[in-house]
Amino acid sequence: MKLKAFREDWSQVAEAVRKISPGRKPKVALYMAGGCGGCDLSFIGLGERFLDITENIDVVLWPLIADFRYSRVKRMYDKTIDLCLFNGAVMNRGQMDMAQILRKKSKIITAVGSCACMGGIPGMLGLQGKGKEKSRKRVKLAEGILPLPEPCDFISPLSGVIDVDYLIPGCPPTPSMILKLFVSMLENKLPPKGSVFASGRTLCDECERARKGKSVKVFHRPYEKVFDDKVCLLDQGLLCMGPVTRAGCGSQCVSANMPCRGCLGPAEGILDMGGAYISTLASIMCGGEKTTIRKTVESIPSLGGTVYRFSLSSSILKKQRRASRN
């Protein structure tokens, strides 16, 4: 709910940003690793406030927007960059090196988006067996042969490679979360290290739909029928990740009558989304004969893919910590 109130104060926030006139503009770097670029677009999605913010910062690296040279970043003094927004999972050697360089050069490093925070969609490669497909070393183009970076053994979130100061989860994070980070940086009121720029409660705590109880016999996919917009989606047989997911997105999916996908990651106190979600599913499923229970479970489209859609790389079973190269 905090975020909603925050959103209504847009105009005040813009004013606050305008009033700040730091002696030196903070240097900001935005880097994209194994991601889709949606997080960068979410920053641009701030609209007019984007201009307010960019007036007050000095962008030193943003490959999506303009041509920057990585060699220039490497030549910088340590801790030159005030804030680095890193989005995307670490999938190959190049991205891993860049993450380590950016850690050296930045004072604050923030993982933006589900991929950087938890491994995200690319992390789902872990559902496939390893070593089945050979990765290509180079690709032939009209201009010549392009060498491809060496892929890592496993896909890891940013925190598996370097120390991360703040997390902004979401796929993509809402513009207001990114704005919150910038405003707190510009006002010099940053929260303690390790903070997450979202609520600590679960999405269900903020949901206003009515609960019905233990009644689910068959699970559906969202397109299979029209769902009541007043009743809990889980009770109607949709795999909504609300009970285990962090709130703070303003319940965008649920208010559009679509189940939560769990992109903000596990709420505070939840270690593994899959484990916690199985407890929830067991409590809403209809009991009875063993064969009915088995049938109900088999009607779930893809349990592993649903519960670990964004967090497979940081789940109990698949979590691995990479040894540093240095």
Partner: peptide
């Protein structure tokens, strides 16, 4: 129920 769900997972 937990057993069947875990087996599936």
């Amino acid at each position: 129920k937990r057993f069947v769900l875990l087996q599936r997972l």
